[in-house]
Design a protein around this nucleic acid. Sequence first.
DNA 1: TGCATGTCAATGCATTTGCATCTATAACGG
DNA 2: CCGTTATAGATGCAAATGCATTGACATGCA
Lengths: 147, 147
Amino acid sequence: MAQTPDISNDLATDIWVRLSRAHMKVQASIEAALKAAGLPSLAWYDALRELERFGPEGGRAFEVQARLLLPQYGLSRLLGKLEKAGYLVRKNCAEDGRGKRLVITDQGKRVRRKMWRVYRAALKRAVGDKLPENDGPLLLALLERLK
Amino acid sequence: MAQTPDISNDLATDIWVRLSRAHMKVQASIEAALKAAGLPSLAWYDALRELERFGPEGGRAFEVQARLLLPQYGLSRLLGKLEKAGYLVRKNCAEDGRGKRLVITDQGKRVRRKMWRVYRAALKRAVGDKLPENDGPLLLALLERLK
DNA sequence: TGCATGTCAATGCATTTGCATCTATAACGG
DNA sequence: CCGTTATAGATGCAAATGCATTGACATGCA
């Protein structure tokens, strides 16, 4: 009488499903917290963080892209918005006429800091508080394997 | 000399970052495998699976929605596409004049089965093969805590 | 019954995304 | 030096998505 003939649920599938749910859940919490605080989205945070790493000389878009996992056009447009918001300036690049040098503004730094407080608190609620004791490092190690 | 004053990396953040990366990685593998096989996306699979669960009498959209984590309008449009593709029929609902009864077609069942083979193989590569021994249940349990 | 309120599902409209392509410049090979 | 190919980044257009609202019906309550 056919015991779930084709929709079989093996372990890998279960892990994938829970991984998805966990990811969605955490992401939703963070985004909701940011929105509730009237702050920009996670994507903006990530970009600002990378920009801030560059320091005052700034850096190039393709460097950010490598660390951010966004498609090239996605980053290009995100940078456009950040610039329009006044969080970033794109100056022509001296050593490479094709590229721009990306420099975060003071305003950009300020908003990133604000976001970090909210972000961190949300993360604590959605992750830290849910993992008792020393299960954190264990989960970290296991996730690392899926890399 | 300020040791990473504000971009502090606590454990929760590390877990979140790796969770994101793992999720993206697995998702990308599955989607790529489906696309390479000329099959529809994961979202279609999930919907078809839920529809198939209903059996021949079909079921309602809101029931699917609860299990699928899609917004209402997203599901509505996805169902529209599935119907246009011939994988589903929406018949007027006898017991509730507002709703439709969703019934998967034979063609829908066939394509779901095809997808499952590809999906499952991709999942094995992206998850099963990466987790040695009995770490699977452990990871499963830890992810469950983030629910 | 009759009206207010709630629910199911679809859709118009603005925004965002993905894909392909484009422009501009650099790097290379002869 | 020139022509070819590669790389940085932007953008036009079509498709997808989010949000708000609608239309149709159900439900609850006086």
